[in-house]
């Protein structure tokens, strides 16, 4: 097995791991709040309500 020390793992999780999760949260928040996406989301949310009734267009 590869020998990874306790200190290395803790170091990675406290540095890279922390920023990785913060960056992900920021990216997701920016994506959902991006004004241009709003109409797309609204359309998607409504799209399922009548999908047994007919195709899009």
């Amino acid at each position: 097995m590869i020998d990874v020390s306790h200190e290395t793992l803790v170091g990675i999780s406290k540095s890279y791991g922390l920023f990785y999760l913060i960056a992900l949260s920021v990216a997701v928040a920016v994506y959902v709040c991006w004004p241009r996406n709003k109409s797309k989301f609204d359309r998607a949310a409504k799209s399922i309500l009548n999908d047994e009734d007919g195709p899009w267009r």
Partner: peptide
């Protein structure tokens, strides 16, 4: 996220929140 809105005949309360929850749960 599919059957509850279609049965209630109302779109999901917040589509944005559903995406945030998705990535939250995944990560």
């Amino acid at each position: 996220y599919y059957y509850l809105p279609t049965r209630a005949q109302r779109p999901i309360f917040s589509y944005r929140l559903s995406i945030i929850s998705f990535w939250g749960i995944t990560f």
